[in-house]
Measured scan of single mutants.
Amino acid sequence: RKEMTAACTPRRRIINLTSVLSLQEEINEQGHEVLREMLHNHSFVGCVNPQWALAQHQTKLYLLNTTKLSEELFYQILIYDFANFGVLRLSEPAPLFDLAMLALDSPESGWTEEDGPKEGLAEYIVEFLKKKAEMLADYFSLEIDEEGNLIGLPLLIDNYVPPLEGLPIFILRLATEVNWDEEKECFESLSKECAMFYSIRKQYISEESTLSGQQSEVPGSIPNSWKWTVEHIVYKALRSHILPPKHFTEDGNILQLANLPDLYKVFERC
Rank of each mutant, 00 (worst) to 15 (best):
P50V: 14
H40Q: 09
H32F: 09
G213I: 14
L150W: 02
N159A: 08
N179M: 11
V230C: 07
E185Y: 09
L211T: 08
S225R: 14
G46Q: 15
Q51T: 10
L64S: 02
L121S: 06
F248T: 03
P219E: 13
L90Y: 02
V87T: 14
G120C: 09
I151S: 11
A83G: 15
V178N: 00
Y124W: 08
F140L: 05
S91E: 13
T66E: 01
R13C: 06
E33Q: 13
K118P: 11
Y204F: 11
I27V: 13
W226P: 02
P219Q: 12
V218M: 13
D158Y: 07
Q51R: 07
T59D: 14
I233V: 14
M135E: 03
K192I: 05
Q256D: 08
E71C: 06
I27Q: 01
F82N: 03
L21M: 11
N149A: 11
F82V: 05
R36Q: 13
V234P: 00
Q256F: 11
V45A: 05
P244T: 03
K60A: 11
L102K: 13
L136W: 02
R1P: 13
N253D: 13
K227D: 04
Y235P: 01
S221A: 14
L17E: 06
P261Q: 14
W228Y: 12
V178Y: 00
T66P: 01
T18G: 08
P244L: 03
E3K: 04
S22G: 15
K236W: 04
L211V: 15
I125N: 04
I125E: 00
M38V: 12
E123W: 06
L96Y: 00
F248Y: 06
G46H: 15
S221R: 12
R89F: 14
V87M: 12
Y198V: 01
K184G: 05
R89C: 08
I200S: 02
F170V: 00
L129A: 01
M101S: 09
I169D: 12
K2S: 14
H32Y: 10
F82A: 03
C186L: 05
K68G: 11
P168N: 04
F187P: 02
P261E: 13
K227Y: 04
D262F: 12
S19Y: 03
K192N: 05
E146Y: 13
A100S: 10
P219I: 12
C47I: 14
S199C: 05
G220F: 10
R12P: 06
I222N: 14
E119W: 09
P10L: 07
R269F: 04
G86W: 08
R1S: 15
H241S: 09
N28C: 10
P107G: 13
K246F: 14
K227N: 06
E33W: 10
F128H: 14
A6L: 05
L164H: 05
T249L: 11
V266I: 15
G152F: 03
E71Y: 11
C47W: 04
A100K: 01
K130E: 12
N84V: 00
L238C: 08
R89S: 15
K184R: 14
E108D: 14
F267E: 15
P93F: 04
G31T: 07
N28Q: 13
P244I: 03
H57Y: 14
L88F: 10
I242L: 12
T67D: 00
E231D: 03
S199M: 02
L129N: 02
R89W: 11
Y62K: 00
C186N: 04
S189P: 00
A175I: 15
N49W: 02
S216E: 15
G152L: 00
Y124P: 09
I144F: 08
D105N: 12
L64Q: 00
L90W: 04
I222K: 13
S191P: 01
S216F: 11
A94P: 14
E185I: 10
H232R: 08
V20Y: 01
F44D: 01
L121I: 12
S22P: 08
L54G: 01
F170D: 01
D181W: 15
F44M: 04
S106F: 11
E72P: 00
L99E: 04
I222H: 14
C194Q: 03
K227G: 05
A237Y: 06
A100Y: 02
S221Y: 13
E92N: 07
Y204C: 05
C47S: 09
L238I: 10
L190M: 08
T176L: 10
E29I: 08
E250T: 13
A100L: 10
Q256C: 15
T112F: 07
L260P: 10
L23V: 03
L35K: 02
L90E: 00
I233S: 08
L121F: 09
T249V: 15
W52Q: 02
Q215H: 12
H247G: 08
S106M: 13
C186Q: 04
P154Y: 01
T66N: 03
M196G: 10
G148M: 13
C186V: 03
F85C: 06
L174N: 01
C194T: 12
S43T: 10
S240C: 12
V48P: 11
L63R: 03
P10N: 08
Q58H: 09
Y198L: 03
R13S: 09
Q24P: 01
Q56W: 06
H247I: 08
D98E: 13
Q51M: 15
P10I: 13
N159I: 03
S109I: 13
I77R: 13
L104M: 13
S22L: 14
V234D: 01
G213P: 06
Y62F: 12
F248D: 01
N65M: 01
I15W: 04
